[in-house]
Amino acid sequence: MKSSLKWMALAASLVWLAAGCTTTVRYGDATSSKPLSTDFGSADLQQIVAKMVDSMLSSDATAEITATRRPVLIVDSVKNKTMQHIDTESITDSIRTRLIRSRKFSFQDRTTEKALTEELAYQQVASEKPVAYGQQTAAEYMLTSNLSEIEQSAGRVKDVYYKFTMSLRNLKTGELEWADEQEIRKEKIRSVFGG
């Protein structure tokens, strides 16, 4: 009886190892909020973008400036003040895309300026009716943002705090029309047996 129980326990352990250690590849949910590490990840990016754009669109300041028309907005690159390499252009793109979908603002994009200048220059020499220089609408508002990080460790616990601050500035008056911040805290508790 005792020996058969031992065999059963051994078989169960083998099954446990086989089930848990199998390599699996599959499609995942692109909007998942599962934290895989304390590094800044896709779920953090999506959360920040959703929260900040929601806050901006529902603010009284935005309601006032978009009440009768769609003001021209330019989204400045996110300033990365963390110790990590983060593709901040991706955050900027996501913010701009979500704002464009709301149809409350018109946009100017400085990231494609070089290609645009080349195209306009080409048109002047090659096209029958080239688009004339100096006809672009000027941005009236600028959206600026900062991403910062504070990391703390104590024993087996690692705590990483991210703060994303975004503000909307009136380019004519220089005044800040709106600002908000989003915080994310990620915690890793290392197992007693290893990494």
Binding site: A9, A11, V15, W16
Partner: peptide, 13 residues
């Protein structure tokens, strides 16, 4: 035995 195997599968992922 069945119970143990099921439990192993469950906890094993």
């Amino acid at each position: 035995a069945g119970g143990m195997l099921l439990a192993a599968l469950w906890t094993g992922g």
